[in-house]
Nucleic acid binder design. Structure first.
Lengths: 242, 242
DNA sequence: CATGCAGTTTGCGCCAGGGCAAACTCGGGA
DNA sequence: TCCCGAGTTTGCCCTGGCGCAAACTGCATG
């Protein structure tokens, strides 16, 4: 369950890892090389923490492969999932928002590979690399938007709608087509879904069972496949576009 | 109810308006003068919108005086209050997070005075004025933190705790000492409080009545005075520091 | 001074969904 | 192969808080 620090010296990272990712897409080969040479790559077992809420922010990361859950824990010990991060995105970008500690815990949902850089390089990145700042702040903006939407949903919607919405968002962000339908690309439990929607695993289970009977979804252990996204969308309370 | 654009030509704004505010505190007199000369000041009636969700972000603002509510409206017409902004803070900083439209509507809770600058000046501000970017992103970070807390509360706490927490946060951010206790410095209705906590005005009213009977608060039309913040804190579910 | 409206209070009934408890199922490790 | 534990399902009961309805209170306006 603990993370395996496969630090430098390491295999030389290939430039193609970064060239297609928005924060780096405007950079030339030489710059990408520079960035890679400063990075430390690391593998994280599924379930292990990449960094912890409240800890001194020493590094910021890029998620090369795998999925990450960003989680907060209440004073009473309950978990709330704040965000899901798909591969290719930055995480732990505390310095971007003027923080010296991480505001939440990041947990690998699957085995995950990250690149990490010391936070002291952040100002250099922002200043030296064209488009890096812009793209990063776009990410921040998107996450703010997501959080906002979560707040609205929690404040106004029924449990059924919230769960439908969460699942739709997950398949949008990390869906994978299969012959059965669209599958969420990483393992997710009823418990996870309940922490995402502010309800209990029991209620989630009951709802998924009901939906399965109606043929909307097909679910198994830690797995959900959506067979009828359109019907889910109706349940989610979204206004059909007229 | 509509806003009164008191545009340029205008009275010359005094430099002391900005010198103490974090985003500008590291600047010298000449720079502050520059910034003020680029600004348009405007007065907003209580209840009027400063900008609207989804609108093209043409300006970013500084709230000189008054209080502002940042709200979103659901597809079903319900309002949710995302944030309260006290005087002295920036608002409408869409460009900071890579957005071209405002993600929410800003409504003046009291009569309010703003300074506004065209968004095209944003990059200049960030680059020319020492400390501006840093302080701005700290603000963004704080707001993200607040949103995060809201999500946790909505997901895990009972209505009573959420309302207690919201009131505590409001008096923290915009409290004003009176001989009766600490008063929320701007008018706030039961409805507002319910939109802040994801409940109904009825439930809020019932709770406030109960608290009033116990001497915790004293409330009137659009006004709340906290007489026993400590007791409220116990209700809010915060762990007493051991 | 009358009138109206915005904001508030309160009562009553109901039900979505949480709490609790128990049983089941699957997958992986010894 | 069997066993164990994590994840899931389901039933039953109970209640927090919402929906609905109606009445009340002041402030503001003509």
């Amino acid at each position: 369950m603990s993370s395996q620090p496969a630090r430098k010296p390491q295999f030389r990272l290939d430039e193609s890892l970064l060239t297609d990712l928005p924060p780096f897409s405007r950079l030339d080969r030489r710059q990408i090389r520079e960035i890679l040479d400063l990075a430390v790559s690391r593998r994280h077992d599924a379930g292990s923490a990449i960094f912890d809420e409240g800890a001194q922010a020493e590094r910021f990361y890029l998620l090369l492969d795998g999925h990450v859950r960003v989680v907060r824990i209440t004073e009473t010990g309950e978990q709330v999932i704040a965000l899901h991060i798909p591969p290719g995105q930055l995480l732990g970008i505390a310095p971007a928002i003027g923080r010296e500690t991480y505001p939440a815990t990041a947990v690998a949902a699957t085995e995950a590979i990250t690149l990490g850089w010391p936070v002291r390089l952040w100002p250099d990145f922002v200043c030296d690399y064209d488009g890096f700042a812009t793209e990063t702040y776009k990410t921040v903006g998107k996450r703010i938007g997501e959080m906002n939407t979560r707040i609205m949903e929690l404040a106004t919607q029924q449990v059924e709608q919230r769960i439908a919405n969460s699942i739709l968002r997950l398949i949008n962000q990390s869906g994978r087509k299969t012959d059965e339908g669209i599958e969420i690309a990483f393992p997710i439990t009823r418990q996870d879904l309940s922490e995402l929607t502010g309800t209990t695993l029991h209620t989630v289970s009951r709802l998924l069972s009901a939906w399965e009977k109606q043929g909307l979804v097909k679910s198994a252990r830690r797995k959900i496949v959506v067979r009828d996204a359109h019907a889910l969308m109706l349940l989610s309370g979204a206004q059909p576009r007229h």
